[in-house]
């Protein structure tokens, strides 16, 4: 929490005078530093309403013009080629395609990514010991967290690229196809 904000008016015991200033505002503030806040109503509530209506309207428009897919009745005897998982898992499918050991991209990599994501706030913190400082420099990259940003961006783009390739650029027998052909 921003505790420094409240410390603005800490009295210096060596000083016999205090400074005062008239601050613009709509309500009296006693023993409190000026804060950069606004009333939730109406400032935020108006934005919330506009944003909610805009998203709902956009969703309605999309639903009016694009129908959700419905293919033929499920038939265990007819295997589509290629059979694809939902789009958010096609990235994993694409990775499985590269290896003979599917356990690595299917289980180990997703699990490692989840564990790493959960650990991010616990490794990106102020180092207190020399070891933590070294750890921080290797895995985070100092105060500017260059390494962490680099890794996270790599993860985002990796997920994006493999998902796009897996869901759009793969045809029969998982061969490379161009979606516009």
């Amino acid at each position: 929490m921003d505790k420094n904000q409240d410390k603005v008016f800490v009295k210096d015991p060596n000083k016999t005078y205090g400074l005062m200033e008239i601050v613009e505002g709509t309500s009296p503030m006693v023993e409190k530093a000026p804060e950069d806040t606004v009333d939730t109503f109406p400032h935020y509530i108006i934005l919330l309403t506009i944003c909610s209506l805009a998203v709902t309207f956009a969703l309605l428009l999309i639903s009016l013009f694009f129908d959700a897919p419905l293919e033929d009745l499920a038939n265990p005897l007819i295997t589509p080629n290629p059979g694809k998982a939902p789009w958010y898992f096609t990235g994993i499918q694409e990775l499985i395609h590269y290896t003979n050991k599917p356990v690595i991209p299917a289980i180990i990599i997703p699990l490692l990514i989840i564990v790493w994501l959960i650990l991010i706030p616990y490794i990106d913190r102020k180092p207190l010991t020399p070891f933590a400082s070294l750890f921080n420099r290797i895995f985070i990259g100092g105060e500017k967290r260059r390494i962490l940003i680099y890794l996270f961006t790599l993860f985002i783009f990796g997920a994006l690229i493999f998902t796009i390739i897996g869901s759009l650029f793969r045809g029969e027998n998982w061969s490379f196809v161009l979606p516009w052909k």
Binding site: A74, N75, P80, G83, K84, A85, F89, I107
Partner: peptide, 22 residues
């Protein structure tokens, strides 16, 4: 839930991925 080909094979492929768990 729609129980069409897309659904059936999507789940079949997805759950096959899970069988790779050691």
């Amino acid at each position: 839930l729609p129980w069409d080909q897309l659904a059936y094979w999507g789940i079949t492929v997805g759950t096959t991925i899970m069988t790779y768990t050691p």
